[in-house]
Amino acid sequence: MSKLEVEIESKSPADKLWEAITESNTLFPKVFPDQYKSIEILEGDGKSVGSIRLITYAEGIPIITFAKEKIEVADQANKTISYSVIDGELATFYKTFRATLQITAKGDGSLVKWSVEYEKANDEVPEPDLVQDFALKTFTGLDEYLLKA
């Protein structure tokens, strides 16, 4: 099992950023139409353990057209969420693909920690740098959006 981690310092307060993450089903396609075409809730409420979401990516996103995610951890008190990709291109490239997001207060802003544990399906599969860059772009863009809102 391999792991990638990203830390992003955000100017937005942790509570405001966490609220935006919990509303990502509607917020992300609106704020990032060049990245997210839609996010549908297939099971559950889209926020709690067991919920399954179907993310359809915008045209122009390389390699990946959709991902089906299942929420495995949803800890409101610690602003932490973990989900596994259970269908889509990532599920064919990686035997396991589990991402964790945690937001903690840091001064007036917050610290976003995003990590992914993964196991490649075979040696030809590249490291998930593309996914890491996508996450970095999303969280940086979300901070900019919230500061203007």
Rank of each mutant, 00 (worst) to 15 (best):
K3W: 01
L4S: 13
L4I: 12
E5W: 00
E5A: 14
E5I: 13
V6F: 06
E7S: 14
I8K: 06
E9I: 12
E9V: 13
E9P: 02
S10K: 08
S12H: 09
S12E: 07
D15L: 11
K16E: 15
L17W: 10
W18Y: 10
E19C: 03
I21L: 14
E23Y: 01
E23P: 00
S24M: 11
N25F: 01
L27V: 02
F28R: 01
P29Q: 05
P29Y: 04
P29S: 06
V31A: 13
P33N: 05
Q35M: 14
Q35K: 15
Y36D: 00
Y36W: 10
K37W: 01
E40D: 15
E40G: 03
I41G: 04
L42F: 04
L42C: 05
L42D: 08
E43A: 13
D45W: 11
D45F: 11
G46T: 11
S48Q: 12
S51R: 06
R53S: 10
I55N: 10
A58Q: 07
A58C: 08
G60I: 09
G60K: 09
G60L: 09
G60C: 09
G60P: 10
I61F: 15
P62E: 06
I63S: 12
I63P: 00
I64L: 13
T65A: 11
T65D: 09
A67D: 07
K68V: 13
K68G: 08
K70F: 01
I71L: 13
I71N: 05
E72N: 15
A74Q: 07
D75W: 04
N78E: 14
N78R: 07
T80Y: 00
Y83D: 01
S84T: 13
I86H: 10
G88I: 08
E89Y: 02
T92W: 00
T92D: 08
K95F: 05
K95G: 04
T96W: 01
F97W: 09
R98T: 14
R98Y: 01
A99C: 12
T100Y: 04
T100I: 03
L101I: 15
Q102A: 12
Q102R: 10
A105H: 01
G107A: 04
D108L: 07
G109S: 05
S110P: 08
L111Y: 02
L111Q: 12
V112Q: 06
V112R: 03
W114E: 05
S115R: 03
S115M: 09
V116N: 06
V116M: 07
E117F: 03
Y118V: 08
E119Y: 08
K120C: 09
A121E: 07
A121K: 11
A121Y: 03
N122S: 15
E124N: 15
E124C: 02
E124G: 13
P126Y: 07
E127N: 13
P128Y: 02
L130K: 02
L130A: 14
Q132H: 02
D133W: 02
D133C: 01
F134C: 00
K137F: 03
K137P: 00
T138Y: 01
F139T: 05
F139D: 07
G141D: 08
G141C: 12
L142P: 09
L142H: 09
D143V: 09
E144H: 10
L147M: 14
K148F: 04
K148C: 05
A149Q: 14
A149K: 08
A149W: 02
